[in-house]
Structures are given as C-alpha cells and as structure tokens.
Design a protein around this nucleic acid. Structure first.
Length: 346
DNA sequence: AAGCCGGGGTG
DNA sequence: CACCCAGGCTT
C-alpha cells in the first residue's frame, strides 16, 4: 500500500471512529501536556477521572509552578508513578524560569523538561502546535510491527530505530500531524489491540504484512519481563474517633516517597518496599484480622493482612504519623494501597 | 541494555 | 492468572 493510500484510509477511519475525549477538545498545550503525562503507562479510562480535577486545581503552568509538591501529589494520588507528578511541577517551574511561562515550541527545549521524553515531546508538539513531529507509543509500536511485520523484540535499539524511522516517514505533509498521530494511537487502542485484534473490521487488513502472513497473533514479539515477587504485609487500622492513623513514607524512599499510608510492615521475606517492623517498637498492640486485600505495585504482588490495632498507653507518636479525618482523603497524597485498604475497612 | 517505578482492566 | 497500558529515568 502506498503511503498516501495508507494515510487516507487511516485518517478516514479516525474521523469516523475517534472517541470524544476531553483533552481532544482543547488546543491548550498545558492541558494536552498534562493529559500526555497522565496517559504514560495509564489507561484512558483512568485518566478521564483525574484530568478534569487536576486542571481545575492547577489551571495553568503558573498555577502548577506555584503549587506545593504535596498538593500536586494529592491530586495525583492513586495514579501511580509518582515521579510523573513531581516532574510535572518541576517542569512547570522550569517553563516559568526559562520560557516566560509559555510552553516551549522547540523540540530540544521540550525534551529538556523533566518527565518529557521522545513520546511526550512528539505528542505535545504535534497535537498542540501542529508541528510535523512523529511519536511512538505502545499502540503505534504494535500497529507498525504488524503492518510491516517487524520481527525484532519491542524495546531493542534496532526496533526502536525502525519504528521511529517509519513514524517520521509516514507523517503526512498536508494533513494535521496531531490528527495523524492520534489516529495511529486510536487505531491501536480500538482495532489493532494487543489480544484479539479486530482484523475483520480493519481498514488496513488487506495491506497488513502480519495479516497476509498469518502472523498477527505472534506480533509484536514482546520483551522479556522481570520475575514477579511476592510480598506479605500487615497493615493496621488504628481508629480515634472517626479518624485513622496514617504514616508518611520517608522523603528519600525509593518509591512513593513522601506519600501517606496506613502503618505497614512486611511479614514475609524483606523486599525493602516497606519497613520490616513497627516503628517505634511497642507502639501498637495488633488485634484481630478484619480481612485481606490484594494489591500490586509494579512487579510486586502484595497480600495484605488488615488488622485492627490499638495504640500503647501514653504513646508518643513520632512526627511522621498523623490522623486522617473522615472525608479528608481527597486532600492528601495517599498511596493507592492505602485507599484500597481504607475503602475495604469502611 | 536493563531495571525500576503504580495501579488496574481485560481476555 | 498473564499481559500491558498515549513512558521516562537511572545505572
């Protein structure tokens, strides 16, 4: 299929099938940037809940730059990959410092911002500024690897180079590059899906190398995944009035730094994800188990034993403890696991 | 190049 | 269950 015919078919499909997503209703680079940061490794359905609230809370670059980090984390709470939130704020501050508060239009300047890599740079520049910049995300990688029967494992330098070369080559000259990039991603999300792709309704099927070779289900070749680790935790429900005792993770923690969680310790083999014993010792008297909760954090599969507990008499709580008042959850940067356990215990 | 970061939906 | 999602950063 000629590039021209390919573009025509896919753009026609996109015009007829594109979802009406809220961030597709704006041309504001700030809103588009926020959506792209949220969408990193995160499903559209999840972002639908967070994007409007985040924009209401931090309406523009200056507002985000002036915000306290804990407030940005609170708005991000539950989305995961919390470095994205910190980077967003840092990048907003850099834009105020170096670019007069206006989102930069030069690719190199955009790539200099923390949290923005090749994908996000291409997305914001093409969608917000109509620049002829390509992008590769998980969807586009899958579409291309099938369309052109690329055998190399995803993630290798060879396949990366090939994918970006293709993306650059296919980018239309006379049509909106933002629409084209979004058409590719939308097609991957709705038709050329990871499993059970809808080849019967695929407008590119007759020209799909994988389809012609009968290899759709074996492409793309996935990259090897790290082994899963099992973690066993004990989490305490300590009530005072209607409040719950919560504990802040250290600022220098490798993961979820500074976020709030319920008092937690690892029961099984230590992974370093959570502390090994209650701190300080003797503070809690654990009571009965009220239930178990399953959770996962990246490659860790977590089995949580939720226990009621009481504080020792005349306990002196260290400063990293606090009481979470009812209905104050939304204003605090709780971990997703803490939200899950609280919802369960309620 | 490989490992790491959250959390959840889906087949 | 396994897989992977509008990735980026660090080593």
């Amino acid at each position: 299929m000629s590039h021209a015919a390919l573009r025509k078919s896919l753009l026609a499909w996109y015009r007829a099938n594109r979802r009406d997503l809220p961030w597709r209703r704006t041309r504001d680079p700030y809103g588009i940037w926020i959506s792209e940061a949220m969408l990193q490794q995160t499903r559209v359905e999840t972002v639908l809940d967070y994007w409007p609230k985040f924009l209401q809370r931090f309406p523009n670059i200056a507002g985000l730059a002036a915000a306290r980090e804990e407030d940005v984390l609170a708005a991000w709470s539950g989305l995961g990959y919390y470095r994205r939130a910190r980077s967003l704020r840092e990048a907003a501050r850099a834009i105020v410092e170096k670019h007069g508060g206006e989102f930069p239009r030069e690719r190199e300047s955009v790539l200099d911002l923390p949290g923005i890599g090749p994908y996000t740079a291409g997305a914001v520049l093409s969608i917000a500024f109509d620049q002829r910049e390509p992008l590769i995300d998980g969807n586009v990688a899958r579409v291309f690897s099938r369309l052109f029967a690329i055998d190399d494992c995803l993630g290798t330098p060879k396949s990366e180079r090939r994918l970006w070369d293709l993306a650059r080559e296919l980018l239309p000259r006379s049509q909106s590059p933002g629409d084209w990039n979004q058409a590719l991603m939308e097609f991957g999300a709705l038709v050329c899906t990871p499993r059970a792709p809808r080849c019967e309704e695929c407008v590119l099927a007759t020209h799909c190398a994988a389809r012609i070779a009968g290899r759709v289900t074996e492409l793309p070749r996935p990259k090897a995944r790290p082994a899963v680790l099992d973690v066993e935790l004990e989490v305490l429900i300590v009530r005072r009035g209607g409040s719950w005792l919560i504990e802040q993770r250290p600022e220098d923690a490798a993961r979820m730094a500074g976020l709030w969680e319920l008092p937690t310790r690892e029961i099984g083999p230590a992974t370093g994800l959570f502390r090994a014993r209650w701190q300080p010792a003797g503070l809690f008297t654990p009571g009965r188990e009220v239930g178990r909760v399953r959770h996962s954090i990246t490659r860790h599969r977590i089995d949580v034993s939720v226990r009621e507990a009481t504080l020792a008499k005349r306990a002196r709580l260290p400063a990293h403890f606090a009481w979470l008042r009812p209905r104050a959850e939304s204003q605090l940067a709780l971990t997703g696991m803490a939200r899950k356990v609280l919802a369960f215990a309620n």
